[in-house]
């Protein structure tokens, strides 16, 4: 057994998932590659979205990958920090907006 659940070196092995299911693995990587191509959004904008989502998903591999990818695209650290605050705001907003549900329930049960 590995001593930790996450090993940074495993990121390089991501492509190996195709070895145990070539068809689905390849379809995923084709899709993934296509998503990040320059489109209506620039590859730079997509990289920042990916960085923010990497944080909300709390995926260490994705954080490593998209921090580096952002740097490669000339993104500044100020831009990166703002992007993850957007992610954090949505996360906290998503928690707090459920407060309305709590309030509704209190009002129903306890007038």
């Amino acid at each position: 057994m590995a001593k930790t659940y996450y090993d940074p070196a495993d990121l390089r092995k991501f492509g190996k998932i195709t070895e145990w299911n070539e068809e689905l693995g390849n379809k995923f990587f084709d899709y993934y590659g296509k998503v990040f191509e320059e489109g209506a959004l620039t590859a730079r904008e997509k990289s920042l979205i990916a960085l923010a989502v990497a944080h909300t998903e709390q995926c260490p591999y994705c954080i490593d990958a998209y921090t580096k990818d952002s740097l490669q695209r000339g993104v500044t650290k100020e831009e990166m920090m703002e992007a993850i605050h957007v992610g954090a705001a949505i996360k906290s907003g998503a928690t707090l907006v459920h407060g309305v549900q709590m309030m509704n329930k209190v009002n129903k049960l306890d007038g």
């Binding site: 590859a43 730079r44 740097l71 490669q72 000339g74």
Partner: peptide, 20 residues
């Protein structure tokens, strides 16, 4: 000439040119 400021590779040249 743009070269990266750290241990990473340069991004796409034409996209960087637009940003610059």
């Amino acid at each position: 000439v743009y070269n990266p400021s750290g241990a990473f590779l340069p991004g796409d040249q034409s996209a960087m040119e637009k940003d610059f």
